[in-house]
Design a binder for these strands. Structure first.
Length: 585
DNA sequence: GCCGTTTTCGGCCCGACTGTTTTCAGTCG
């Protein structure tokens, strides 16, 4: 059966192969496919059910792309794609993954040397044949040779989980900040947009002394291999094969630079188009008045450049928070009807998925966990240690009752905070939950989550979740798919059915702030938000050091366009408690 | 391939770095 994901994969392959055929990834045809793919992904509807007319109605999708999608859904293949596949077999396409080897050079080595795969390319390099081609020399040959060696270890399509990239980026920013010549530093790119996997780390430095900053970067102990080293830009690979790009700009250009390097590419293109429509030019150095076309680019009067906020304002737009900058409707929204009132970290009034050492995997005492929550300024807190079904980590009914008394004691020391005795229920293979229904009903608050049986069909998994959602003792669904980003994919679900159930039973969907999880994922959050599903942002803390995850959960929710009012733990205490008690049998 | 207060053609975001040239093409983001 063809799915939306298959359609998007088909378009993605069309992008790859067409950029070879056109000789440039910047070709307008390639960009058109790319744009159509992004637009359809953001659309969220089941692409296999849309008519030609409905497809063409999507901004960025024309008749040609729409016809290909219909052809694909009806026949399982696309003639144009089949033709391209014959021209560019997989082993040849594999060559395009080599960094530094673009479509032009690729077609040159194919036509001149008959190279069709990596082995033949290696052979040609060994025989020093590449350097004989026009535009190439011994240096290029050596560079390509090196790129082949690290193929798969680094480069174009290797993604790093955010949990690995964020700590490194924070260390690098801190290090660069310590230079006296540095005015400001920020990591940008997909990391700042809080994408769950990162292609490379982009760092923008504001300084009047780019030479000092570049010299400092080159000698940094994280540098395993220098890729690029210019006057204002240095790129290097870490020992783990992650690429880091550092760019230096003048302090008065910092806003334009961070805006540009944060992207996304699609967001930037829309902003630049908006600038052009207003007789201006937007690049990484600023927003310039371009009404005098004769004028040298360098002489154009700067309209805004110091901060991102000034640039958005000069483009007659609301400020767009980085997590929303994906080119999925945020530019028109920020220029017209307005962005939603996004949830912010400062709105959060409580954590509702929170462990203590009552759980086998908890590592801090009730006293300490409650203490740090109180210091974080929360009005309410649900202690949700594991239920009995999670054998190693869970607690029996008797242990849970003792735990309740313990929590009540600790609560006396925190009169300003409502402390709830809760539970993280385990969703069994077919949707069963811990204890019996009467006992479950005793808890002040529950979060139900999947911890096992990851290998069932999408229908079985969806049924299992719906069964849990329908149970009147369940307040929320925790880490929806059980994924670990980059390590374990998580269960597959029918989101239409899932969202219907969440709405019907008024159960909140968790956005789990653990960096390895960020579950529900931002695209699922956006689907849920569109339908008005209630959300809850939690840390799933198991230790007093993990409360910072709330920020990560908030950023993920922002990527899903989550408005404050749909997030139940932004509500004041009475409103929240009324909702939480609403389902009690 | 897509799009249209210049609507069926002629535009389409913008710049740094590198290696090869000696003014620029290719690649990348």
């Amino acid at each position: 059966m063809t799915t939306s994901r298959d359609v998007l994969a088909m378009l993605s392959e069309l992008v790859t192969l067409t950029s070879l055929a056109e000789g440039s990834p910047q070709s307008f045809k390639v960009r058109a496919y790319e744009k159509a793919g992004l637009a359809l992904e953001a659309d969220g509807r089941d692409l296999t059910t849309l008519t030609l007319k409905e497809l063409v109605a999507v901004d960025g999708v024309g008749k040609a792309t729409a016809s290909k999608i219909i052809e694909f859904v009806e026949t399982g293949s696309v003639e144009k794609l089949d033709t391209l596949r014959k021209e560019f077999p997989p082993e040849f396409v594999e060559l395009s993954r080599i960094p530094g080897l673009g479509p032009k050079t690729l077609m040159l080595v194919r036509s001149e040397l008959g190279i069709e795969n990596v082995d033949q390319l290696k052979e040609a390099i060994a025989e020093e044949k590449l350097r004989t081609l026009p535009g190439l020399g011994a240096t290029s040959e050596a560079k390509i040779s090196k790129s082949i060696e690290r193929l798969g270890l680094s480069g174009k399509d290797r993604r790093t989980p955010i949990a690995d990239a964020l700590p490194l980026a924070e260390r690098l920013v801190e290090d660069l900040q310590s230079l006296p010549e540095t005015v400001e530093v920020e990591f940008c790119g997909s990391l700042r947009r809080f994408s769950e996997t990162i292609g490379d780390i982009d760092i923008t430095v504001a300084s009047d002394h780019p030479d000092v900053v570049m010299a400092h970067v080159v000698q940094h102990n994280e540098v395993a291999d220098l890729v690029v080293n210019g006057a204002t830009k240095t790129s290097f690979l870490t020992a783990a094969g992650l690429q880091v790009d550092v760019r230096v700009v003048a302090p008065e250009q910092f806003g334009a630079a961070t805006l540009y390097f944060t992207g996304s590419k699609a967001h930037n293109i829309e902003l630049r188009q908006r600038a052009i429509d207003r007789g201006m030019l937007l690049n990484e150095y600023g927003l310039m008045d371009a009404s005098d076309e004769e004028m040298d680019a360098a002489d154009r009067p700067v309209v805004a450049s110091r901060t991102e906020a000034e640039i958005y304002a000069a483009l007659d737009m609301e400020f767009v928070p980085p997590p929303m900058r994906e080119g999925t409707g945020e530019v028109p929204a920020a220029s017209g009807d307005g962005l939603p009132e996004l949830v912010q970290r400062s709105h959060i009034k409580g954590d509702l998925h929170y462990h203590t050492d009552r759980s086998g995997d908890g590592r801090s005492s009730v006293e300490d966990m409650v203490d740090v929550a109180a210091k974080a300024g929360y009005d309410y807190l649900a202690i949700t240690d594991h239920g009995v079904d999670l054998a190693i980590n869970g607690s029996t009914a008797e242990e849970m009752l003792e735990h309740r008394d313990h929590i009540a004691e600790v609560a006396q020391a925190h009169p300003d905070m409502t402390l709830m005795w809760g539970c993280e229920l385990n969703i069994g293979k077919s949707g069963g939950l811990d204890y019996d229904a009467d006992f479950r009903a005793l808890f002040d608050y529950t979060v139900a989550s999947v911890h096992s049986h990851y290998d069932q069909t999408i229908v079985e998994q969806t049924d299992r979740l719906v069964a849990a959602i329908a149970d009147p003792t369940v307040n929320s669904i925790g880490h929806l798919t059980g994924r670990y980003i980059g390590r374990r994919p998580g269960i597959e679900l029918d989101y239409t059915v899932l969202i219907d159930a969440l709405l019907e039973y008024d159960v909140a969907l968790e956005v789990n702030g653990a960096l390895q999880r960020l579950d529900a994922a931002s695209d699922v959050v956006r689907k849920a938000v569109d339908r008005g599903v209630k959300l809850v942002i939690n840390t799933d803390s198991h230790h007093v050091s993990e409360l910072g995850r709330m920020e990560y959960g908030v950023l993920t929710a922002q990527r899903g366009w989550a408005p404050k009012d749909l997030v139940v733990n932004t509500w004041d205490r009475n409103r929240f408690l009324e909702w939480a008690n609403g389902r009690k049998p």
